[in-house]
């Protein structure tokens, strides 16, 4: 009986769904709290009960990333892999990889000081979207419509002055319908897709109240998602896509610890089942 482990720091509906499904599939299943686990350079795999495979599901990106590094040190198979978590957790790394691998993606500009960011904005023209390079749920994603708004946001960045505040990620405001597409890909398959329609503003995050509506998985959508998945290193991913008026699909984000409670309401396939089976099959074969 495969031993399936879920590493968490806060149990959301998704983690409960994954645990229930793994038990239902007959796997020896345990939840492991990252916050109460201590690992060292002297640790051995046999010191822990990490089973045959771990699904890393921490809500804190950095906690999950560093825990994953420890798991790989112990030679514990983990999804997603450290490289993938690193590629997806940082929007700048993701954008660079997508472009490098010829995945259609919005034009994105990187500056490393507020003065340079202003130069970029003045050169490219408004509006541009500023995003924190680390973060989720649409937080800190702001449409910079004019110089006045940009100055205010950049000033706040200078006041907070965290290490990541000095990296400016400015993205074109894609001309698109007031929705985007969230796709879940598992390995080399797209297993579910939905439209997320904005509830008013330009953001379309389910966390902000966007309504999930089923989206047909066309060959074109599947192709672009598989290219995006390969670009970041594969695994279990949440791929966000906009429908550009001229270019068609453009991938703007790839998420590493995908949330799916919204999509699970409209998906034809059972998302937790697909995730658990994928992880177990790859680790145990």
């Amino acid at each position: 009986m495969p031993k399936f482990r879920i590493v968490f720091d806060r149990v959301r509906l998704e983690e409960k769904m994954l645990e229930e499904k793994a038990i239902e599939l007959g796997h020896d299943t345990k939840m492991i709290d990252a916050k109460t686990t201590n690992i060292s350079t002297e640790s051995k795999k046999s010191d822990f009960d990490f089973g045959d495979v771990v699904l890393e599901r921490c809500v804190s990106y950095f906690r999950g990333l560093h825990f994953t590094a420890c798991l790989e040190f112990l030679d514990v198979p983990v999804f997603n892999r450290l490289e993938v978590a690193n590629n997806c957790g940082n929007k700048m790394f993701t954008s660079l990889l997508l472009k490098k691998h010829n995945v259609p993606t919005p034009k994105t500009y990187f500056s490393f000081s507020s003065e340079s960011a202003v130069e970029t904005l003045d050169r490219q023209g408004y509006p541009l979207v500023i995003k924190p390079i680390i973060g989720s749920w649409g937080r800190g994603v702001i449409l910079l419509k004019d110089r006045e708004t940009a100055d205010a946001i950049l000033e706040v960045r200078e006041i907070t002055d965290g290490p990541l505040d000095r990296i400016f990620y400015l993205q074109e405001a894609v001309k698109r319908p007031p929705r985007d597409i969230r796709v879940i890909s598992v390995g080399d398959q797209v297993i579910a897709a939905m439209y997320r329609t904005s509830t008013g503003g330009f953001k379309t995050n389910i966390a902000l109240g966007a309504e999930p509506v089923p989206c047909e998985i066309t060959k074109e959508l599947e192709d672009v998602c598989m290219k995006a998945s390969k670009a970041v290193g594969g695994g279990i991913l949440g791929i966000d896509i906009m429908e550009d008026e001229k270019r068609g699909f453009v991938v703007h984000e790839v998420n590493n610890t995908v949330e799916f409670k919204g999509l699970a309401k409209v998906a034809k396939r059972n998302i937790p089942k697909e995730i658990v089976e994928y992880a177990v099959n790859l680790a145990v074969r």
Binding site: R10, V59, S60, G135, S136, W137, V258
Partner: peptide
């Protein structure tokens, strides 16, 4: 509050962590 441990109907609670800048997907 976060449920820190559970033994039958007896739970130990601790203050939940506040939402961090790096929280999410």
């Amino acid at each position: 509050f976060e449920i820190a441990s559970k033994n039958g109907s007896v739970c130990e609670l601790k203050h939940a962590e506040k939402v961090g800048e790096d929280w999410g997907e």
